[in-house]
Write a protein that binds this DNA or RNA. Structure first.
Length: 264
DNA sequence: CCTATAGCCTGACGGC
DNA sequence: TGCCGTCAGGCTATAG
């Protein structure tokens, strides 16, 4: 689930549910998700605090506490947030649960334990330590910067889009969507793209991420022209009605339309 | 420096 | 039915 549009949806979900409430209790059900912090220390630093504001950079979500420190969430492949009141609504793989004084809880659920939870005192320092590239939707990533980034890349364009150290936020699914809508074969070498194609790719990237984030990353709400609702379903290209194929690109499955996406 | 591959985890699914 | 291999919207460490 968790690429830029999904994480943005989680962030807004958090904003509309869990802000400005005192955390009465903290339960860590899987220590493994905690990075660089012990369970004891994590609980101590979260307890009696409140979440005051949120930010996002790429696939990372940040929730700043009322003491100025920031809770950092990464969702791996299977993570999400759930806000609920009754115990029986607790999601099945809740790894960290914060309980508020109003009787509600927010759970960080992460089935495959590939996500990460930590506390940092400076978000920008964290981003630079992780060597994250600019957020894909940040205005700081303008066309010139995007061109510079892609010009440095030698491998498949899909791998370039998914490299968090180059551009933060795009994963396997949205990389496929962006390449589909741009008409580029996922295995095309980034170095083979001409300036016009890179420009088109840039505009498509921004548009796809904006549109899907606005739809809260729910594929049922995506425009009919989008590939995502078809991948692994009917596998029919929404544009030419041809068969969607899969290939491996740097170890991940790429869905693409052989007729609409030619190698360059 | 760069890019490509294995490993980390759990659970769902299809084939035998 | 049960078991097994494969695969899954992530990243990191290591090899080349």
């Amino acid at each position: 689930m968790p690429e830029l549009p999904d994480v943005e949806a989680f962030r807004q979900y958090c904003n509309s549910t869990a802000l400005h409430q005192k955390i009465k209790e903290v339960e860590v059900k899987a220590t493994r998700v905690l990075k660089n912090i012990s369970q004891k220390e994590f609980v101590r630093r979260m307890k009696n605090r409140s979440l005051e504001s949120t930010q996002r950079h790429g696939k990372y979500m940040f929730a700043t506490l009322d003491d100025g420190n920031t809770l950092v969430l990464h969702f791996g492949m299977t993570g999400f947030l759930e806000y609920y009141k009754d115990q029986d609504k607790e999601p099945p793989h809740a790894r960290v649960i914060c309980s508020f004084t109003n009787g509600y809880h927010i759970a960080y659920d992460c089935q495959r334990l590939l996500g990460e939870v930590r506390i940092v005192d400076d978000i920008d320092v964290f981003i630079s330590k992780q060597k994250l590239g600019p957020d894909a939707l940040d205005d700081a990533l303008d066309l010139n910067t995007f061109m510079e980034i892609l010009n440095k890349k030698r491998g498949a364009v899909k791998s370039a889009l998914m490299d968090q150290n180059s551009i933060a936020g795009i994963g396997n699914i949205y990389a496929d969507e962006i390449l589909f809508q741009t008409g580029i074969h996922p295995k095309t070498n980034a170095s083979n793209l001409d300036a016009d194609t890179i420009k088109k790719l840039y505009r498509t990237m921004k548009r796809v991420l904006k549109v899907t984030a606005a739809k809260k990353a729910d594929p049922d709400e995506f425009p009919r022209s989008y590939l995502i609702p078809h991948r692994g379903e009917d596998n029919k290209c929404p544009r030419c009605k041809g068969e969607i194929k899969t290939i491996k690109v740097s170890g991940r499955t790429a869905y693409y339309c052989p007729r609409c996406q030619k190698k360059q």
